[in-house]
Simulated scan of single mutants.
Amino acid sequence: MGKILYLDEKESFGIEIEESKINAIYHMCKESFPKETGGIIIGKYSSNLNRAEVKIVTGAPVDSKCGRTWFHRGTKGLQELLDEAWDKKGMYYLGEWHYHPGGTPSPSIHDIVEMNKISKNNAYHCPEPILLIAVGSPINNWTLGAFIFTANKKQITLKQQNE
């Protein structure tokens, strides 16, 4: 399986993610349907810092809460996972992913507020977090939206590139 590339319109910023990781997200969404779910994404940046390389996508921590139109990601076990990713592979928190069942692959107002909080929260060490939003259902096609949020509250939409 290959890598999927998402780029901004100027091709200045991008995300590389293995197709298997995207399929893992879709599988977790299918298991959660019709409720929202989500997790975090972990990886590295390219040497020139213009591409995020997604290496790990987690499921929802056990202390997460969800409903048909909302998701609150828990934290149980995430710090240990992040510490291990850093210690063993030099990888770190890149951002979040979640599922909008029957929705659109665009951030809600709540998503935007939360991502802006993350970009400004020094505890995350992530001034430009990524947000991946999966949409679809077990009987419909799946789609993934990709976004970067900057510390100055700018939202950058990324588009999947054709192979």
Rank of each mutant, 00 (worst) to 15 (best):
D111S: 09
I148D: 00
L132F: 08
S137V: 11
H100V: 11
S137N: 13
P129H: 10
D111E: 09
I133W: 04
L144P: 00
W97M: 14
I112Q: 08
I112N: 03
G145E: 05
P105A: 07
H110C: 13
N116D: 13
S108V: 08
P105D: 06
T104N: 11
I148H: 00
T143V: 06
D111R: 08
P105E: 03
P105K: 02
A146C: 10
P105F: 05
W97H: 15
E114T: 12
A123E: 12
P107G: 01
T143W: 08
I112E: 01
G136K: 02
G95V: 08
T143D: 11
S106F: 03
N140C: 12
G136R: 00
Y99Q: 11
N140L: 13
I109W: 14
N121V: 03
F149T: 10
G95P: 10
A123F: 04
H125R: 15
I109C: 13
Y124Q: 12
G95W: 02
I130L: 12
I133K: 04
V113P: 10
S106E: 10
S137F: 10
M115H: 03
E128Q: 07
I139E: 04
T143G: 07
K120Q: 05
A146Q: 00
N122Q: 14
S106M: 09
T104H: 07
K120W: 07
N116E: 14
H100E: 12
I109Y: 15
I130E: 06
W142G: 09
P127T: 02
A134I: 04
H100A: 12
P138E: 01
P127M: 04
E128K: 08
L144N: 00
S119R: 09
T104Q: 11
S106V: 07
H100Q: 13
Y99G: 10
T104G: 06
T143K: 11
F147H: 02
S106H: 07
S119G: 12
W97D: 13
N116R: 14
Y124S: 12
H98G: 14
N141M: 01
N122W: 13
H110G: 13
S137D: 13
A134E: 06
S108M: 11
M115L: 11
W142D: 14
I112S: 09
G103H: 02
I139R: 08
N141W: 07
M115Y: 00
N140Y: 12
Y99M: 11
L131R: 02
N116G: 10
P105G: 01
N140K: 15
E114P: 05
N116Y: 12
I109T: 14
I118L: 10
I112P: 02
G102D: 01
A134K: 02
